[in-house]
């Protein structure tokens, strides 16, 4: 007794489906990759710092290694020189992995329609959630992350299998 009953009250037994339990686990402790590219990364840092405190959503632990992280926040403009690196980082992440494209540059190239910038990171890796803004406010980023959480909560068992290549 003790801890569980103090958290759950007098419920005794909780029944749930496997899908719900796994998805709950995936959303509650999602570890982002510590990966910043440009200006948007500064706003991403603000989101994690004291005022906006991303750890409220179980995301305080940034992993520098792609092997240990679930979510890649592409924060900033992806240049043609950087694109192979981004792709390689994505390939190293373990499944299930999610990509959030933060800011106009990562989503569509933003103000830079020129020789150096990849016009949207979705040209090289698949993206789950796009967050607009230049840079997006921390609230916007949090909204994007919550949108991703909602989406993960709706995942089904067969998607875990068929979506392996993600």
């Amino acid at each position: 007794m003790g801890v569980i009953s103090s958290k759950l009250g007098n419920l005794g037994v909780v029944t749930t489906s496997l899908e719900t339990a796994v998805n709950w686990g995936r959303t509650g402790a999602m570890w982002p990759l510590l990966f910043g590219l440009a200006c948007c990364a500064i706003e991403m840092m603000s989101t994690q710092a004291s005022n906006y405190d991303l750890s409220r959503f179980g995301m305080e632990l940034n992993r520098a290694s792609p092997r240990q992280s679930d979510l890649m926040i592409v924060a900033g403009r992806v240049t043609r020189k950087m694109a192979p690196v981004v792709r390689q980082l994505y390939d190293q992440m373990a499944s299930p992995r999610y990509v959030l494209s933060m800011g106009d540059c990562a989503s569509s190239g933003g103000v830079y329609n020129n020789y150096a910038i990849v016009q949207g990171v979705d040209e090289i890796i698949p993206v789950d959630v796009y967050v607009a803004g230049c840079p997006p406010r921390p609230e916007q980023l949090i909204h994007g992350i919550l949108t991703l959480h909602e989406r993960i909560k709706g995942e089904h068992f067969n998607e875990w299998i068929t979506g392996q290549e993600r």
Binding site: L37, A38, G76, R77, T79, K81, M82, V85, Y112, N114, Y115, A116, I117
Partner: peptide
């Protein structure tokens, strides 16, 4: 350097 060369 140059991984963030944006052509500004």
């Amino acid at each position: 350097v140059g991984f963030l060369h944006t052509g500004i």
